[in-house]
Amino acid sequence: MPTVSMTVNGKPTTAEAEGRTLLVEFLRGPLGLTGTHVGCDTSQCGACVVHVNGEAVKACTMFAAEAEGADVQTIEGMANADGSLGVIQQAFQDHHGLQCGFCTPGMVMSAAALLKENPKPTETEIRDYLEGNICRCTGYHNIVKAIMAASGQDVTAIAAE
């Protein structure tokens, strides 16, 4: 079987992959990085969002071999170096931005991509950006609130409707 090499969360990695091996299968299988979830497997739900060369993509709808040589970041790479939660992760905890937690890896990765291109998004911009991330528990309010808080904005005015 051919091998695929990429840098995942800063570490160079190489593993076997068929042409049809999806990036998410590559991450969860040989690399054992099961933080990236498979929800719908049809590129609707966004639970599998990771960053490839800094851009958010749905890892269930990209072949691993397409990420050959790429710099990939997953939810496992979002914590601080000392193992404590990163700013976005901490905000999700502080503002109850999750209930069952299944969508959370994708939500955090999408949020990180948003804040990189738009450091102080409005509530509407956050909701627009999360178009491709589905949560069945929270009703999104606390996710939006967590992302606003992570961007350093005051969230006291945002009602928990």
Binding site: S43, G46, A56, V57, G132
Partner: peptide
């Protein structure tokens, strides 16, 4: 089109 992650691919 689609959502941000879809537009990136």
């Amino acid at each position: 089109i689609g959502d941000p992650a879809v537009r990136n691919r």
